[in-house]
Design a protein around this nucleic acid. Structure first.
Length: 415
RNA sequence: GGAUAGAUGGGUGAGCGGCUGAAACCACAUCCCUGCUAAGGAUGCGUAGGAGUAAUCCUACCGAGGGUUCAAAUCCCUCUCUGUCCA
């Protein structure tokens, strides 16, 4: 959630920055007005309540002294009617403010480039050069079927479109990648955690998927429970409503989970192959940090994901997302895009974001900072999306006959 | 599924409907004493919001949500979770 105090104090600045993310000034204006109204309603209510409390105390004293309470009771009763009204006003204001505030995205960092969509993203650097092929490289779905690694039809048979099944070496490679990534991250100081794949509404509100993006989530029928779209949700919310000690920070975690996304609005995109599936595997990095450390941790996470790709000998590039392409909760995001020779293009394989205190404010994650409590910064990044890594391995390590070489670092994990 | 007990501040754990935002202990912080791998003493120490230059004051919160009452951590109802016992 954005900082309402900051909005009141620096309205111009906040609205300028959010305009870059496509938030209208009208919306922010009504938010500002609402928060002022709520404040007034609160003051009105609290004044009445204070009077009520004082009279109640008096009441006790009167009783003790055996004085007549009829006159006092009449005053108390009259005040009570006003309190009920004031409380109702405040409740309505509160609800309206919350639903408004919860749907406003995070403020982008100052160094985020301005832009409309993914075409305006800015490349930072390329890592490893794409290999020269002496033949025309095939796309991964062809290779996957040819080698018997992935069965797209049977996935559809079991569930629906955009589900697939891995067999044999395909399944082994998947498992090897998960283990390799977890070990790699673990060596870099990220603690492994294993979390539920189902979470409640509060958790999803904490990280920002709800209330705005319910259509993208799989919901459990008749229950306020959802399949997780990313491990970021359960792992970040591990510390929801907690006050951490500074000595605990930074907390660096890595988790493997399946991820479930409806991909609403993605009709027609990446329909072939396993680039965009409803269920996919992902190893995630999540960090909880003091504000002054979060930039450093961010770089560390980007570097870890990049090194992982390098260890797998996969050419990739780093891209800073422009303001228009930035996600709802992110203040800054760097995407890692892997080279896919079959498609002759770079495709997103990891996305590292700093949400600053946006999620911490929603999920109430704080730490003791000197004497006061402050919000932590939360960061998350994929490391990596397993399915897309398999795609990248297939396309980059293919031979002319369609066979595929397994990257050397994975050998110990295959057998 | 049935029965039963419970849910209090960072932790353990008291709490008669008003004097309880909450005892005590532990932990933690600062200071004093002490010259030794320790002990003792003093003070402070929940969260959020609001008023004020400030001292300070006000409001809310004792699992969640309702209710009774002038007044609820304390009484009533519903729900959630945890423990134990029975199927």
């Amino acid at each position: 959630m954005i900082d309402l105090k900051l909005l009141q104090k620096d309205f111009q600045d906040v609205s300028d920055k959010l305009a870059r993310k496509g938030v209208s000034i009208e919306l922010l204006n009504s938010l500002k007005k609402k928060s002022e109204e709520l404040k007034a309603a609160k003051v009105a209510f609290e004044t009445l309540q204070a009077a009520q409390n004082a009279m109640s105390k008096e009441f006790g004293i009167y009783k003790k002294e055996g004085k007549d309470v009829n006159e006092l009771k009449a005053r108390v009763d009259a005040n009570k009617i006003k309190i009920t009204e004031a409380l109702e006003t405040q409740r309505i204001e509160q609800e309206e403010l919350e639903s408004l505030a919860m749907s406003i995205p995070n403020i982008p960092d100052d160094d985020v480039p301005y832009g409309k969509d993914e075409n305006d993203n800015v490349e930072i650097k390329k890592v490893l050069s794409p290999r020269e092929f002496s033949f025309t490289p095939k796309e991964h779905w062809e290779l996957a079927e040819k080698n018997g690694w992935i069965d797209f039809e049977r996935g559809v048979k079991l569930a629906t479109s955009r589900f697939s099944v891995s067999f044999g070496m395909g399944a082994k490679l998947e498992r090897a990648l998960i283990n390799f990534m977890l070990s790699f991250n673990s060596k870099r100081g990220f603690e492994e955690v294993s979390v539920p794949s189902i979470v409640n509404r509060t958790a999803l509100e904490g990280t920002g998927q709800l209330p705005k993006f319910e259509d993208d989530l799989y919901k459990i029928q008749d229950q306020e429970l959802f399949l997780i779209p990313t491990a970021e949700v359960p792992v970040t919310n591990l510390f929801q409503d907690e006050i951490l000690l500074p000595t605990q920070l930074p907390i660096k975690m890595t988790a493997y989970t399946s991820c479930f996304r409806k991909e609403a609005g993605a009709a027609g995109r990446d329909t072939r192959g396993m680039i965009r599936q409803h269920q996919f595997h992902k190893v995630e990095l999540v960090c909880i940090a003091k504000p002054e450390d979060s930039d450093k941790i961010f770089e560390e996470m980007v570097q870890t994901a990049s090194d992982l790709l390098s260890a797998l000998e996969l050419p990739h590039r780093l891209v800073t997302l422009c303001s228009g392409d930035l996600g709802f909760s992110a203040a800054k995001t760097v995407d890692l895009e892997v080279w896919l020779p079959g498609q002759n293009t770079y495709r997103e394989i990891s996305s590292v974001s700093n949400t600053r205190e946006f999620q911490a404010r929603r999920a109430k994650i704080r730490y003791k900072d000197e004497n006061k409590n402050s919000f932590v910064h939360t960061l998350n990044g994929s490391s990596l999306a397993v399915g897309r890594t398999m795609v990248a391995i297939m396309e980059n390590f293919q031979n002319e006959d369609g066979s595929i070489v397994i990257p050397k670092v994975l050998e110990p994990y295959i057998n």
